[in-house]
Amino acid sequence: MAERQEMKIGREDPQARGPEAVRRAFANQVAYCRSNGAPVTAGICEGLHRLLEGERGGAVMRRVRKWQGPPLADALPLRIAGGLHALHLDGAEPDLEPVYAGQRTTRMADLLADVIERHEPFLMPWLDGPPQTNEAGRSAAFAAALLWLRARGLPGQFALHEIGASAGINLMMRRYRYDLGGVRVGPPRARMRIAPEWRGDPPPAGDFDIVGAQGCDIAPVDLADPRQALRLRAYIWPEFTERFARLDAAIAAARTFPPEIERSAAADFVERTLAAAPEAGVTRVVMHSVVWQYLPPAERERIEAAMAEAGARASAESPLAWVALEANRESHRHELSVRHWPGGPEWTRLAVAHPHGEWIEWSG
């Protein structure tokens, strides 16, 4: 049996490029998947990592080996892993069935090379864009942040503005019911019920109302389109079966009242949104989850400048908040952090959380 390589999450430059950066991106993804309870996805990424050292895998792997952008920031391993999962979900590749059933194999790299070479035209486009990992479970962190903001004295009517909204699943959180460590909020009869494992004290008890929800994405996903819905399913790690059920519930909700998403770059959207006159008695919230790492530095700077400028104009009657659930590149954990104006522009870390909403560890 081939000896499994020991891979650990390291402190990597997300903008690093070149062959070594590609190898480190795959090694980091293997370690990240293992540490987050995703052994199947880890095994696939490890097999792809082994393919980097050879010549198999056709044009797809040649493109991966010579990746022109920063592979870590581009989430390169998840692009190709998503395409392979789509082949399996579509029933197009029987050889992948034992892999996704969790059966270990000593020839993972060769198996993946065979599959990639057979399905080159299908897999090549999966390298063209970043993963779409829209996940309703992450909205539990947003709900907890809204309760915290309400407890800080901000108006309990919120207008949500999400960047990197993908299919808009989190924009529909007004239709979800949450159990956050025993604190329940949302419509009691909601079809979507989200109850992450809660660690630590519960968030502040209370209620809130979402009076508006808009989002943007450079490539919005239409949940009513079966092929686009398949793309979202493909980016769900197969180990987390509950996420598939949440996605199905979100698709049903979107068919009755689709979320409002525009095709736009994040900085353009934030600047336009914050240039509009705020409504008295409403807290405007700019929010995002697992998006910041994909934005170019210049775009992040524009968003930060727009938020600071709008924050300086904010008032107690028309406050502004920034809610982020993003990876800390030093601790390798996802942190729920909040800023709000008035009240000081510093970030407050409220929690660390599983990237797909399985648990929340509250410290707010």
Rank of each mutant, 00 (worst) to 15 (best):
residue 336 L to A: 05
residue 296 P to C: 07
residue 33 C to E: 05
residue 128 D to K: 03
residue 26 F to I: 07
residue 98 P to I: 02
residue 67 W to S: 01
residue 281 G to Y: 10
residue 18 G to L: 12
residue 10 G to Y: 03
residue 323 V to Y: 14
residue 144 A to F: 06
residue 51 L to M: 10
residue 219 A to W: 06
residue 332 H to P: 01
residue 308 A to H: 05
residue 193 R to G: 02
residue 362 W to P: 14
residue 215 G to R: 02
residue 77 P to D: 07
residue 37 G to W: 03
residue 45 C to Q: 08
residue 58 G to V: 09
residue 141 A to T: 14
residue 329 R to K: 11
residue 46 E to L: 11
residue 60 V to I: 07
residue 175 R to N: 09
residue 215 G to A: 05
residue 317 E to Q: 15
residue 295 L to R: 07
residue 97 E to S: 13
residue 183 V to H: 09
residue 93 E to P: 05
residue 21 A to F: 10
residue 343 G to I: 11
residue 346 E to R: 15
residue 123 L to K: 07
residue 107 R to Q: 13
residue 262 E to G: 02
residue 283 T to N: 05
residue 99 V to C: 00
residue 37 G to M: 08
residue 100 Y to F: 15
residue 193 R to E: 02
residue 74 D to M: 03
residue 335 E to C: 14
residue 266 A to E: 04
residue 35 S to P: 00
residue 71 P to V: 04
residue 49 H to A: 14
residue 351 A to T: 15
residue 216 C to E: 08
residue 360 I to M: 15
residue 189 R to T: 06
residue 332 H to D: 13
residue 260 E to W: 02
residue 260 E to C: 09
residue 69 G to T: 04
residue 101 A to R: 14
residue 279 E to R: 15
residue 108 M to P: 00
residue 342 P to N: 08
residue 177 R to H: 15
residue 152 R to G: 14
residue 39 P to Q: 05
residue 68 Q to P: 00
residue 259 P to E: 06
residue 313 R to P: 04
residue 117 E to P: 05
residue 359 W to L: 09
residue 104 R to Y: 02
residue 22 V to C: 08
residue 296 P to K: 04
residue 39 P to I: 01
residue 111 L to W: 05
residue 56 R to W: 00
residue 84 L to C: 05
residue 232 L to Q: 13
residue 53 E to S: 12
residue 346 E to K: 14
residue 196 P to D: 03
residue 235 Y to L: 11
residue 274 L to Q: 05
residue 288 H to K: 07
residue 312 A to H: 09
residue 131 P to K: 11
residue 266 A to I: 08
residue 136 A to R: 03
residue 338 V to W: 02
residue 309 E to Y: 02
residue 144 A to N: 08
residue 216 C to M: 07
residue 279 E to M: 07
residue 151 A to T: 02
residue 14 P to I: 13
residue 150 R to L: 03
residue 357 G to Q: 09
residue 147 L to V: 04
residue 125 P to D: 08
residue 282 V to L: 01
residue 288 H to R: 11
residue 328 N to I: 10
residue 245 A to C: 01
residue 240 F to D: 10
residue 343 G to A: 07
residue 165 A to E: 11
residue 81 A to C: 10
residue 43 G to L: 01
residue 138 R to G: 14
residue 139 S to A: 15
residue 298 A to L: 06
residue 327 A to G: 14
residue 112 L to A: 09
residue 145 A to G: 06
residue 74 D to Y: 01
residue 330 E to M: 03
residue 262 E to V: 15
residue 102 G to S: 09
residue 8 K to S: 12
residue 208 F to N: 05
residue 194 I to Q: 00
residue 75 A to E: 04
residue 187 P to D: 03
residue 151 A to Y: 02
residue 291 V to P: 01
residue 162 E to Q: 05
residue 36 N to C: 08
residue 306 A to P: 05
residue 313 R to V: 06
residue 275 A to R: 13
residue 192 M to L: 12
residue 149 L to Y: 10
residue 47 G to Y: 12
residue 197 E to T: 07
residue 295 L to M: 13
residue 279 E to S: 11
residue 226 P to N: 13
residue 144 A to Y: 04
residue 109 A to W: 06
residue 137 G to I: 12
residue 115 V to C: 13
residue 328 N to A: 14
residue 154 L to P: 00
residue 344 G to E: 03
residue 19 P to E: 03
residue 148 W to F: 15
residue 230 L to I: 00
